[in-house]
Amino acid sequence: MSLSRAPRAALLTAVTVAGGLVLLTACGGGETGKSGGGDDSNFVTNTGGISTVAQGERRSTGELSGETLEGENLDVADLKGKIVVLNVWGSWCPPCRVEAPHFVKVSNELKPKGVEFVGINTRDRQKGPALAFEKDYDVDYPSLFDPAGKLLVNGFPKGTLAPQAIPSTVVLDREGKIAARSLMALNEKQLRKMIDPLIAEK
């Protein structure tokens, strides 16, 4: 019986090792080329933590419309023809405070080049703290008020570069398609790294 058990034990060990290698390969492969939605999205993650999509492979957002913190209606689709920088933030978020001055500066400098900034304020249950944040940092571009995160769920289809953290920044090209994403707080240099290639596109 010891002779018959030995080959069986060796076979089980080989199957277990092979299975483990397949599992590791599948997990490792899923880290690149896939977004949080789990579908192929054909993006490349640069060393700077910015994910981009090639011009011919980009996908449109879902509906991104609603009421701003100032009580006005805003539909991001109406900004088609411009490059749109979507910044997901909350007044309670320390990294959002760090990046805010950079966003205000770049927004003011690039507006003449056809770049529009739109915030998506989330997890602030009341508008008051968010409005105070905008005042403190001289934020003069609009922010959609999305306390429950519905826009973040419905506005970015499965398989696209969806926001997955706060702060997150997503940049849309002139056709309203998702071109780049960052899941960290950005400084001016990093932000321009996301936008400048889209300004240069024809």
Rank of each mutant, 00 (worst) to 15 (best):
S2I: 13
S4F: 13
A6Y: 08
R8I: 12
A9Q: 10
L11D: 03
L12Y: 13
L12N: 11
A14D: 03
V17I: 14
V17W: 09
G20N: 04
G20D: 03
L21T: 08
V22A: 12
V22Q: 10
V22P: 03
L23E: 05
L23Y: 15
L23G: 06
L24A: 14
T25S: 13
A26S: 13
A26Q: 12
G29V: 08
G29N: 14
G30Y: 15
T32H: 12
G33E: 14
G33N: 11
N42F: 11
F43G: 04
F43H: 11
V44S: 13
V44A: 10
S51E: 13
T52C: 00
T52W: 00
A54D: 15
Q55Y: 09
Q55G: 07
E57T: 13
R58M: 06
R59V: 13
R59D: 09
R59M: 09
S60Q: 08
S65K: 15
S65I: 00
S65C: 01
G66C: 14
L69F: 02
L69A: 01
E72H: 03
E72K: 05
N73C: 06
D78R: 05
K80C: 02
G81V: 01
G81E: 02
K82C: 00
K82D: 12
V85H: 03
L86E: 00
W89T: 04
W89Q: 05
C93Q: 07
P94Y: 14
P95V: 09
V98C: 06
P101R: 05
V104S: 01
V106L: 12
N108G: 11
N108H: 10
E109T: 09
E109H: 08
K111H: 11
P112E: 08
K113C: 02
K113F: 08
G114V: 06
V115L: 09
E116M: 11
G119S: 06
I120F: 01
R125F: 13
Q126V: 12
K127V: 12
L131I: 14
L131K: 14
D136T: 13
Y137E: 05
D138K: 06
V139P: 00
V139L: 05
D140Y: 00
Y141E: 04
S143W: 00
S143N: 07
L144Y: 01
P147W: 12
G149D: 07
G149R: 05
L152W: 02
V153F: 12
N154P: 04
G155C: 06
F156L: 09
P157S: 09
P157L: 11
G159T: 14
T160M: 02
A162H: 12
A162L: 13
A165W: 08
T169K: 01
V171G: 03
E175M: 08
G176Y: 06
K177Y: 01
I178N: 00
A179C: 10
M184F: 03
N187L: 01
K189I: 10
K189S: 14
K189Q: 15
L191S: 02
I195G: 02
D196W: 05
D196K: 04
K202I: 01
